[in-house]
Amino acid sequence: MDAPAQTVAEIPPLEIAGVQLASRLILGTGGFHRLDELAAAIEVSGTAMVTVAMRRVEPTQQGSLIGVLDRAGVRILPNTAGCFTAREAIRTAELAREALETDWVKLEVIGDDRTLLPDPAELLDAAEQLVSRGFTVLPYATDDPVLCRRLEEAGCAAVMPLGSPIGSGRGIANPINIALITERANVPVILDAGIGTASEAAQALELGCDAVLLATAVSRAADPIRMAAAMRAAVEAGWLAGGAGRIPVRTWAQASTTPEGMADLA
């Protein structure tokens, strides 16, 4: 067995459904104002996989998103953003599979348009149907250990619990639940949604998540490129810290140097 990783260069790749990804940061492409800014953020973040959405062709659309992503050499993960039913999500996944020649899908089935929280019943239904149709399913889920276990049992290739609502920037609202999920999962756990800044991305990895998926935290930051660099460093730091065996939390101070051998200066 390999020696445990002790440096950034030794962090092993993220593996999903037998595919290795060189980065544990997955970047959503939403919210970037310009394609050149997106391209720069992808490069600086070091990401190996980015998400896209599927929408009707509009006459006014500008530039080639796919061209930018293909030139960056990243894997493209289509999502089913905006779907409220299993039926819609399955149709969208089928369109995406044809458009992008991938059977991977970030499955989103939203249950409420103000919180954008997942609809667990529709999500599980859609996941089961997509798995049976040969898709590699990465479901965006609530931070519910039971739902995540059910999604894993349904054959999902990863589970993606939220930290807090999409775009809220509130970080990880329930770290206890995230730790319960990572403790028991047998598929990669990807913290998806709610991340606002780098410390929260690091926390996700410290809690045992295998990767983080974020978009708004970078694309809507005042300086997206600088935040992309910060997220890369945070994910690496969090992964290393998570496996480094942190000290226990104590109520009282514990001196790192004992009084033994003190000079008598009284």
Partner: peptide, 26 residues
């Protein structure tokens, strides 16, 4: 409609077409 059938699939009277593409998102 699978891409391999794009050239052989013809529009008919009353066809309801959805034409979609990947955009920034997620």
């Amino acid at each position: 409609v699978p891409r391999a059938q794009w050239s052989s699939t013809l529009l008919e009277e009353g066809s309801a077409v959805e034409l979609v593409q990947a955009i920034q998102g997620g």
